[in-house]
Amino acid sequence: MMDLLHNEDNQNGKEITIKIENLVKRFGNLEVLKGINLEVKKNEAIVVIGPSGGGKSTLLRCINRLEEYQDGHIYLESIDVEKLDVNTLRARIGMVFQLFNLFPHMTVLKNLTLAPIKVKKIPENEAIEKAKNLLTQVGLVDKMDAYPEQLSGGQKQRVAIARALMMDPEVMLFDEPTSALDPELVGEVLDTMKKLAESGMTMIVVTHEMGFARDVADRIVFINNGIVEEEGKPEEVLKNPQKPRTKEFLRRIL
């Protein structure tokens, strides 16, 4: 997958791709994010963990502005995302959803080629070539003429990942990508994500899959009650959590 990514100038992961400063998000009176601070370096894979309702998904949705936020700043390569055209911003950030959200009235191939053709104005034959290439990498090129309803959950999510990659995103956001899958289908999706991380894709993954977090993440971020409680390397956070809330969460989940 390496050749399809935007990292011609690999700088040993030093460059900061996303920087989040004091992010506050309220739904009416309910404060969901209470001042999040986070940096994601280039080529880094971050896994965000934490209890349900803690604001993990909301954080992801703020990054590509599916949610508006009330205070703080998000920077993509040092530029405040609010200063970018929202469609340009989203074209640069890939997102994978819990419920796949494939377009049911289009074939797999169409699902992949629509955005590049309409947004990036890539010629159709080029888009199709690229789609076939990506589908081959996620092992689904034989399904390119199938409709989403003919696919298993795991296959759908792999198509969704390929669809997001079609736009050559600089960052990929995963919002609980395996939560809606039957247990036996989780593995194939996680493998695809792992390969993607190994290829150097910058990723922020919200998940409850602790095995994936341990094996793939460069850093784990524990978000609870709207703030970053603790962050660090997987072995540190998972084996030796510092905060009582982290300990409590890990004890329940592991």
């Binding site: 989203r90 950030i93 997102m95 959803f97 419920l99 959200n101 377009f103 309409k118 947004v119 997001a164």
Partner: peptide
């Protein structure tokens, strides 16, 4: 479903597209 709209917008398609 709202997810259809969000998925499309997250790919950079405009509201009208």
């Amino acid at each position: 479903p709202k997810g259809q709209y969000e998925a499309s917008r997250s790919l950079g398609l405009t509201h009208w597209q």
